[in-house]
Design a protein around this nucleic acid. Structure first.
Lengths: 128, 128, 128, 128
DNA sequence: GTGGTCTAGACCACA
DNA sequence: GTGGTCTAGACCACA
């Protein structure tokens, strides 16, 4: 549930980056909303400011946030990013289905089983 | 195309392990077939025997091969492994679809688009 | 279009300074014309008076404006500044062409391609 | 002449990154050639390994080098990168010429003067 | 207060 | 030996 999971093998900066990437894509954080300051978030997560800094640099490089010198970091506008992530997801699923096909499995079968087990299959997503 | 891609960010031992995992799951390598010897494979791949050893340890730990002291490494029997991998794939796809739902996307739409772009959507998999 | 672009990575004082430098060089602001007062401009841009002050100090140090105590800031006379900026531009272009040559590119080719893509290649500049 | 110039206002990591970017674009460093190790280069430049690490991360992110875990960093293949840089150069020159036009200057004149002062205007570039 | 850079030094995974 | 990550703490520019 928390941002950092010590048992997670991903590096801490990546866990932080991924966490906020999802919040932004879900619309929980809105365009131009202010991110927590580097120092505050580091305190809150009991981690080093450098680590948070790196997570923010990662988010900036990927186009999720922008930095204003002396002011802070702010969330970028979203619909393009959602579209990009959607296409990436499709490629990810396709790669898995592809591997399934090479094992002799039916991709429609895999897709159907994956769909049937979803917690919420109707359209009430995060876009508040 | 080859087993090891220098540009690939995954560690070499993992690339080797993944390569043989796929061959086994596809049925290209059959149950009880002998794996290449550690030394030979290391020579062939121009890599360190320790690295190949580590790949084999990984495959053994995951149940894809078994070791006979003094004889070599051999492929494990297959249908259970295929089933396990299939269930894992379904969980992987479901996780992606789930993230899509939280972004306000329609999971059926994602699945449909992923299916539509497959190179080969009919059932002629690798089972030789 | 505006003076300050939050997304721009340059510091705000530099954006303000650059903006007025261009207006002066283009002749939009004429010699001895009065600059907006520090306070008014700060209000207008919703920024800190210190920041505007710093931009003005920058412009003064570079010879674009002069300060009269108690009266305000005024634009400096122009043709010398245009000539200086012109020489600076030539040096900047030359540095780029030079790097191109070291990469095995033809500098005339680079110059030609840069010229060919200009929005307006004829002489109707900003001189109002 | 050296890699790091303390009077240069650019951050050290960027000076290192730019230095090697140029060597690669000039063909002085060839594809798949090994970069100096992070630790060695840090020693040589009397700087911190973290700083060199950051320079290398920058070069990797921009596609100039690739990393092999446990082995080192290696130079990427070049012609695409040269082409990209060429287009970037043209855009940079065009921006300068554009500003010149807005000041009432003749862009062909600027280009001609920049070309006339080049140390070597013929085609013997760095590609050894 | 806010982010950006850097040093010093540690520990880890990988080859 | 090689790169990758992280902590601790400093100093700087900017608003």
């Amino acid at each position: 549930m928390g941002i950092i999971d010590m048992r997670d093998s991903r590096p801490i900066f990546e866990q932080i980056s991924d966490w906020y990437r999802k919040l932004i894509l879900q619309g929980v954080m809105e365009p131009d909303e202010k991110m927590p300051s580097v120092r505050n978030l580091a305190m809150e997560l009991s981690t080093n400011p450098n680590t948070v800094q790196r997570a923010y640099a990662d988010l900036e490089q990927k186009g999720f946030i922008y930095t204003v010198r002396g002011r802070g970091n702010f969330v970028c506008g979203g619909q393009v990013l959602v579209q990009q992530r959607k296409e990436e997801m499709i490629r990810e699923i396709r790669a898995i289905l592809d591997e399934g096909v090479s094992m002799g499995l039916d991709p429609r079968d895999l897709a159907r089983e994956a769909l049937s087990g979803l917690p919420q299959a109707d359209g009430k997503g995060g876009q508040s």
